[in-house]
C-alpha cells in the first residue's frame, strides 16, 4: 500500500527518529511533506483491525496521524497505556549533542470496557513531540493523569503482536537461533563443520 515507484525491495521502514523528524515535526509545523504517505485518521477512533485500507500499511504495520488524547476508546474497546515513556533521541554521533526529539508511548488494545476489558495482541506505539517546558526526566506520569493536549499531533504505529515471528523487524538482519548455535560451534576447532 505504500505505493511508490521505487524498485522492489524498498519499503516504508522508518526509524523512530525519522518518524518524529520527517513526519511528526513537519505535521506539527504545517510544513510540506516529502513524501506525504501517512494519512490523518484523527476523526474516527478505528479499531485496530479496521485500519486496513485506511492507514498506511507496510509489513503488517499501520501508520496514521492522530491527536494526543486522554482515552483512546473505540467502538469495540480501548487502548490501555503501558505507562512506559521512551525518549526518541537524535542519532547524532557525539553524545553531548544528543537531544530528545520526541517521546514514544506504548499501548495495548483491550476489547470491552475498562477496567474489565480483555487484553488483545494489538500493540500501538504512539509518537509525540516532547512535552514543551517540562523536563523530560521528571516523567513520572501518574496513572490516569496524562497530559491533556488535543492540539498536538501524534503518529500511531499499530501492529498485531504475533507469537510466531522472531520478535522485530530489526531481527530480519539477525541470525537465527540455529545460526548462533553453529557459529559458536565453530569456536571448537575439532568439531567445526565442513563447508
Amino acid at each position: 500500500m505504500a505505493d511508490n515507484n521505487l524498485p522492489p525491495g524498498f519499503r516504508f521502514y522508518p526509524t523512530d527518529e525519522e518518524l518524529v523528524v520527517h513526519f511528526l515535526h513537519r505535521k506539527d509545523g504545517f510544513l510540506p511533506f516529502h513524501p506525504d504517505v501517512i494519512p490523518d485518521l484523527d476523526v474516527y477512533p478505528y479499531n485496530p483491525w479496521e485500519l486496513e485500507g485506511k492507514a498506511l500499511c507496510e509489513g503488517s504495520k499501520w501508520y496514521y496521524y492522530s491527536r494526543k488524547m486522554q482515552n483512546r476508546v473505540t467502538e469495540s474497546g480501548y487502548w490501555q497505556a503501558m505507562e512506559m515513556d521512551e525518549p526518541i533521541m537524535s542519532s547524532s554521533s557525539s553524545s553531548s549533542s544528543r537531544k530528545i526529539l520526541g517521546m514514544k508511548n506504548y499501548y495495548v488494545f483491550y476489547l470491552g470496557e475498562p477496567p474489565a476489558g480483555v487484553w488483545t495482541s494489538w500493540i500501538m506505539h504512539e509518537y509525540r513531540l516532547p512535552d514543551s517546558g517540562s523536563t523530560s526526566k521528571s516523567s513520572s506520569r501518574k496513572r490516569g493523569h496524562p497530559k491533556l493536549d488535543y492540539s498536538k499531533w501524534v503518529i500511531c504505529k499499530v501492529y498485531e503482536q504475533k507469537n510466531d515471528d522472531d520478535g522485530g523487524d530489526e531481527n530480519d538482519t539477525e541470525l537465527s537461533c540455529l545460526d548462533e548455535v553453529f557459529l559458536s560451534m565453530d569456536d571448537f576447532d575439532e568439531i567445526s563443520l565442513p563447508n
Binding site: 515507484n5 521505487l6 522492489p8 518518524l19 513524501p35 506525504d36 504517505v37 523487524d169
Partner: peptide, 28 residues
C-alpha cells in the same frame, strides 16, 4: 494524497525519508 517519488540511488537524489531497501529473500 500520494505523490510520485522519483529517486536515483546512485546520483544526487535520495530515497525518501522513512523508506529503505528491505527486500525479502524472495525479492532478492
Amino acid at each position: 494524497m500520494r505523490e510520485k517519488m522519483n529517486i536515483s540511488v546512485n546520483g544526487e537524489s535520495r530515497v525518501p525519508p522513512g523508506f529503505r531497501f528491505h527486500p525479502t529473500e524472495e525479492e532478492l
